[in-house]
């Protein structure tokens, strides 16, 4: 597909932003997104090409405005929803619960 991921030859992105002191992961959520993607991928319910295609289908404006592991997260959510493993609604409900945890519930 002619998606936003197909970046070769585009102009206007500006200089390459390098940080020589950079850590492997910038934030804790990136660690988790990375590991969840690999662990779910290892189950064999989808292949690497399906994962890439799921990331590529991100709307172009979202793709450019989000960071690398957000692309991964988008792809993972998409693949899980397609296969009925975890729905968008479930994630949304769980987010609400995490924002205001119910009392006395094991987590």
């Amino acid at each position: 597909m002619n998606g936003m991921h197909d970046l070769g030859g585009m102009d206007g992105f500006g200089p390459i932003d390098r940080n020589p002191e950079e850590a492997v992961f910038q934030q804790e959520w990136e660690r988790r997104a990375f590991a969840l993607t690999l662990a779910m991928g290892a189950r064999g319910e989808w292949n690497l090409d399906m994962s890439r295609y799921a990331r590529e289908r991100m709307p172009p404006s979202d793709y450019l405005l989000s960071s690398y592991y957000e692309h991964w997260l988008h792809g993972l959510e998409h693949l899980m929803a397609e296969r009925g493993l975890v729905s968008a609604a479930e994630i949304s409900v769980r987010e609400d619960e995490l924002r205001s945890p119910p009392h006395h519930e094991a987590s």
């Binding site: 988790r32 969840l36 993972l76 959510e77 769980r94 995490l98």
Partner: peptide, 13 residues
């Protein structure tokens, strides 16, 4: 927010 999304996802999985 990816922080909350990942937390939600991990706990569900």
């Amino acid at each position: 927010d990816p922080v909350l999304r990942v937390k939600a996802l991990e706990s569900l999985l």
